[in-house]
């Protein structure tokens, strides 16, 4: 029975990776029509820098991701601190309010942003997308930093205070250094959320300013070109590296103490 279960598990994992593997393999296939037999070629990767649209879209995606990571972390970390460490009325309500960005289908939030930004003159484009991406990343940052805070012990700050630290100094000399891995993990998370964000970017993009996922989408709708495989493979690789980095940091920053 157990072996059946494990076999099933492996089949599921194979299922999860099959199409991805196919796509990656095809990125290295010389045939422009995805035809077998397989012939190894790096042509499609080489062609990428010539594709103006893809290049500019990639650049936008990267810039957006970096800006989102910085802003979302800078805004989300203080909020997470306040929610975790301070008791006040309305705290649960505020925690609840962090759910809409991730719980509401992005289709709805994306279109709502489109409507609102258009009406208020913010319009579309990079600025609008920044607003959207950061908003979507904030709940994740709060969650990641919050988890890091929870596994920290409050008596460390008390110990610091008993030794003469003001609360502020205790925060900076004890809590913050220990929180750093979580903060970095949160930034990585925000980066990944922005990089992979499609729906909201789709609605806030203009013909001249798009992000990589949006470009890939239009390219798919128009027809297949293996360049999409190539860029998708790169994007996939980047996402995976980010996730691994995040996983490593989370494990390190968390319960490292052996007590």
């Amino acid at each position: 029975m157990k072996r059946l279960g494990l076999a099933h598990l492996w089949v599921v994992i194979a299922f999860l990776y099959l199409p991805i593997a196919v796509m990656v393999v095809m990125a290295f296939n010389a045939s422009p029509l995805y035809q077998l037999p397989f012939e190894f070629s790096l042509d499609w990767f080489a062609k990428l820098p010539d594709n103006e649209r893809l290049l500019s879209a990639s650049g936008n995606s990267l810039i957006l991701a970096v800006v989102t990571a910085i802003l979302a972390t800078a805004i989300g970390t203080p909020a997470s601190l306040a929610l975790s460490r301070r008791k006040f009325r309305g705290r649960s309500l505020l925690q609840l309010l962090l759910l809409p960005p991730i719980a509401i289908p992005w289709l709805i939030t994306g279109t709502a942003m489109l409507v609102f930004f258009f009406s208020t003159g913010i319009g579309r484009g990079l600025f609008a997308m920044t607003i959207g991406h950061v908003a979507l990343a904030i709940p994740y940052v709060v969650l990641v930093v919050g988890t890091g805070l929870q596994s920290q012990r409050a008596d460390l700050e008390e110990a610091a205070m008993s030794l003469g630290s003001t609360p502020l100094h205790a925060f900076f000399s004890v809590t913050l250094p220990l929180l750093l891995p979580s903060i970095i993990a949160a930034a990585l998370f925000a980066f990944a959320v922005s990089l992979d964000q499609f729906v909201v970017s789709y609605f806030l993009a203009t013909p001249g300013v798009t992000t990589l996922p949006v470009e890939i989408y239009s390219a798919i709708r128009k027809g297949f070109t293996p360049e999409i495989n190539a860029i998708s493979t790169i994007l996939l690789g980047a996402s995976m590296v980010l996730v691994l980095a995040f996983a490593l940091l989370s494990n390190m920053g968390g319960a490292r103490e052996r007590r």
Partner: peptide
């Protein structure tokens, strides 16, 4: 000077 139940050493 205070010694806490869990020692609270700065890790």
């Amino acid at each position: 000077g205070m010694v806490f139940q869990s020692y609270a050493l700065f890790p």
